[in-house]
Design a protein around this nucleic acid. Sequence first.
DNA 1: TGTACTGTTAACCTAGTGGTTAACGATCCG
DNA 2: CGGATCGTTAACCACTAGGTTAACAGTACA
Lengths: 104, 104
Amino acid sequence: MVNDPFKALSHPIRRGIVERLAAGPATVGDATAGFGVSKPAISKHLKVLEETGVVTRVVEGRTHRLSLEPDVLSVAADWMDRQRALWGRLFDVVDEYLNEREPK
Amino acid sequence: MVNDPFKALSHPIRRGIVERLAAGPATVGDATAGFGVSKPAISKHLKVLEETGVVTRVVEGRTHRLSLEPDVLSVAADWMDRQRALWGRLFDVVDEYLNEREPK
DNA sequence: TGTACTGTTAACCTAGTGGTTAACGATCCG
DNA sequence: CGGATCGTTAACCACTAGGTTAACAGTACA
């Protein structure tokens, strides 16, 4: 099991799937077409996204409808926001430090 | 080479290092103490963060001073923000859809 | 000088990731 | 029923990630 949204997003295909689902729910075929890999490979990526809770699945007949689960990924986004706020505060200090140590 | 901020952040130790550096520049020892792994392991994590451009290093005698590089990680944060904005717009639609299909 | 300290490199090992092909399960539809 | 479609599972393979120990390089300092 994965259970780590950052790990779930660490692969470009999975980020691509998330981007597509952000435009609206879609079937597996629709959400994953054009990545240039086989269906089993896609199936594994979806499994990761589902285990992490990023994506949810509703079976409808022979197709599966995928949707995003915003709450889970917002944890990662919040982490990002927090870090970025800290960087903002820190940037001048770091800059000053580097200029002191290695004046061009 | 890695060159992918999401991959760089996909490991909890690397996120921990970034969190510490967000509080200010630090030496390798200071920034990486308490993770319960050996020094070579830390050295590899730092290499990943450096290759990705997330962390920069200045050698000072026998110690190395690490700092964050806000610009690079802000790319990842922007991606997050964009996704979150889309989710916000999308949330009601998905919710409505699910309620239609599977009324409790 | 020699010894302690900071950090990296080298060599190696294990487990996991990401991909494949082949086969299957279930559903829709003529 | 019988075939096409959607998607998964099984078995396998190559490569990478993350960890270890041992040795090394450079710097500080008594």
